[in-house]
């Protein structure tokens, strides 16, 4: 397959994988592998910014520890960090000339067998989420068509990541809403139980439970639950009531 058709196929595959519950790491691993298959590079990795603001390796085309270490070094210095900070591509034709700029990263990358390195930012509008990192054994520039293809791949991956973040935030909010609703329903049910047992209005039943919760340093939801499961007796909750039978 030509590089051109593999690029189109990969873009379609990445877009197709943007279904509801996709695995981001799997998607980015596919991205790294395809970069090596169709661009003129020998290793590719994806670095994403963590919630703490640090760049982390999330996917790599290589399992070689020396290569992974070169990726990891870029939490502190290197083309990925620069690309992440500036939002622009960093294209290094010859690593031998970069020892001063990156005293840790450049020698380590050369030792791992690389001579040129490129970082393409993963950005969407104002937000930069990480960088796509490409390594080659040979010295020399990344071709213009490879830069364009790499950026297209990085853009699709960025959309995928942002979409997944929105989805997990939404899931959290819905879980919170469902929990809040369930808790509230239990409280309303307990108001009914207590009101019926003690002949109280719903308002008085609520105030009574709230008072009990305050006096016993319990959460209102917990008092309501215990009213419902009858582990609290009427006389415990309603002052002046002599009924010691369970609710």
């Amino acid at each position: 397959m030509s590089d051109q058709s593999l690029l189109v196929l990969t873009l379609v595959e990445l877009a197709d994988s943007l279904v509801d519950d996709f695995d981001v790491v799997e998607l980015l691993s596919l991205l790294a592998d395809r970069c090596v298959a169709m661009l003129d590079v020998s290793a590719a990795g994806v670095m994403l910014v963590s919630p703490e603001g640090e760049l982390r390796v999330v996917a790599s085309s290589s399992e070689d520890m020396r290569v992974l270490e070169v990726f990891e070094l870029q939490a502190d210095e290197g083309p990925c960090l620069d690309s992440f900070r500036t939002g622009a591509a960093v294209l290094i034709e010859d690593l031998w000339r970069e020892n001063e700029r990156w005293p840790q990263f450049a020698p380590a990358a050369v030792t791992a067998g690389f001579r040129s390195v490129h970082a393409i930012p993963m950005r969407l509008r104002g937000s930069v989420v990480g960088a796509l990192n490409l390594f080659a054994h040979e010295r020399g520039p990344l071709s213009e068509s490879d830069v364009v293809a790499g950026q297209a791949l990085a853009d699709v991956a960025t959309i995928a990541i942002l979409q997944q973040r929105v989805a997990s935030e939404s899931r959290l909010l819905i879980d919170q809403l469902n929990t809040a609703l369930t808790t509230r329903i239990v409280i309303e049910q307990a108001k009914g139980v207590l009101g019926e047992r003690a002949g109280l209005s719903m308002e008085s039943a609520f105030e009574t439970m709230r008072g009990y919760a305050r006096d016993h340093n319990m959460r209102l939801a917990e008092v309501a639950r215990r009213v419902l499961d009858k582990s609290l007796a009427l006389g415990d909750v309603v002052p002046g009531s002599s009924d010691r039978h369970p609710l």
Partner: peptide
């Protein structure tokens, strides 16, 4: 839900 609580006692 208040009514459910009351009916459950009744």
């Amino acid at each position: 839900h208040e009514a459910s609580g009351m009916v459950s006692v009744q």
